[in-house]
Amino acid sequence: MTLAAATFPREVRSLEGVFGLVDGFLLESGLGESRRFLLEFVLEELFTNMVKYNPGGAGSIGVELEVLAPDLRIQLSDPDCPSFDIRVDAPAVDPAAPLGSRTPGGLGIHLVKELVDRIEYDHDHRTGTIRLYKKLE
C-alpha cells in the first residue's frame, strides 16, 4: 500500500508543498493523472479551511494519502483545533439557489462532500482528524 505523509505550516502558501506531496504520491502509487483533480481539490478546500478558521492553532497540519484498496484515503489532522465535523457542522449549500442569493461560503465543503464516497471525523485532546475515502474503481 502506497502511503505519502507530511506536515505543513498553517498558511495558505503551504499549498504548493501539499500539491508537491500529491505529485509524489501519484507517481509512487501509479494511480495516474485521473486522480489528481480530486486529491488537489479535497486537500486545498480542507487545508485552507483549517488555516482560515483556526489561524492561531499551534503546530503544523498533517496530510496523509494512502491507497487502501478498494479505496483511496485522504487524511488531514489539525493538532490544536475546536471540533468541526464537516458532516454535520458545515453550513448547507443549495446548488439550486438562484444567482441573487448565492454566496461562496460553504461551497468548498459542499463540493468535497459530493466528490468523495465516505467521510470519518474524530476529535480527541484538541486534535481533529478527518479521513475521506474514494473508491478506486
Binding site: E40, F41, T48, L99, P104, L107, G108
Partner: peptide, 19 residues
C-alpha cells in the same frame, strides 16, 4: 487545468456584478 472554490467565488462575484 484546475479550479477550487476560491476561484469559483471570484467568478460568482463577477457574475453577480454583471447580472
Amino acid at each position: 487545468d484546475y479550479i477550487s472554490s476560491a476561484g469559483l467565488g471570484i467568478l460568482l462575484a463577477a457574475q453577480k456584478e454583471l447580472s
